[in-house]
Design a binder for these strands. Structure first.
Length: 155
DNA sequence: GCCAACGTTGGC
DNA sequence: GCCAACGTTGGC
């Protein structure tokens, strides 16, 4: 089993939005980055766990946990000319972009903020805290996953 | 709102 | 295949 981190802007789609979806499940559309896509296609499996990260907001940080309930399949928003994620180069016959379905598990007891994660020397190799990192989906090692979850109880 | 960092595009 | 120009991300 693998661990992940998913970024989302809460003004677009927050952890609360996910928890309010029917069956607390939604498709994770709009990934338009090859590296993120390749992670989804190659390594992401049903049952994997993911941190839900709020980006581009007042207090960026990890706010919850979700799980993968459906493995990579073509992102239909790429073929919808009205969608902001439309990509004419992605066709039904030869889809370029993929998505997975994720289900809400729980919110963390508190927001583990980016500022805080940056302070932790144990996480200095964690991709999220590296300068200029723009990956919207990234792998998390088991060690980092457990270490970060251990921060939840601290104040 | 600013701007550094980064990925993509397209001319050559 | 190089690389300048451009658009986007996302912290601050």
């Amino acid at each position: 089993m693998n661990y992940w981190l998913f970024k989302s802007e809460p003004s677009t789609f927050s952890i609360t939005d996910l928890s309010n979806m029917p069956n607390k499940t939604d498709h994770w559309d709009g990934v338009r980055n090859y590296q993120a896509r390749n992670f989804m296609m190659k390594d992401m499996r049903k049952g994997d766990l993911a941190f839900f990260y709020h980006s581009n907001c007042k207090e960026p940080g990890i706010v919850g946990i979700a799980t993968i309930v459906k493995e990579a399949y073509p992102d239909f928003t790429a073929q919808d000319a009205k969608s902001p994620y439309y990509d004419p180069k992605s066709t039904a016959e030869n889809p370029r972009w993929f998505m997975v379905d994720v289900k809400y598990i729980r919110e963390l007891k508190r927001n583990i903020t980016l500022a805080e994660l940056k302070e932790l020397k144990e996480l200095k190799d964690f991709p999220l805290v590296r300068k200029g990192n723009r990956l919207s989906i990234m792998p998390v090692t088991k060690e980092d996953w457990n270490f970060i979850l251990g921060q939840e109880k601290k104040t």
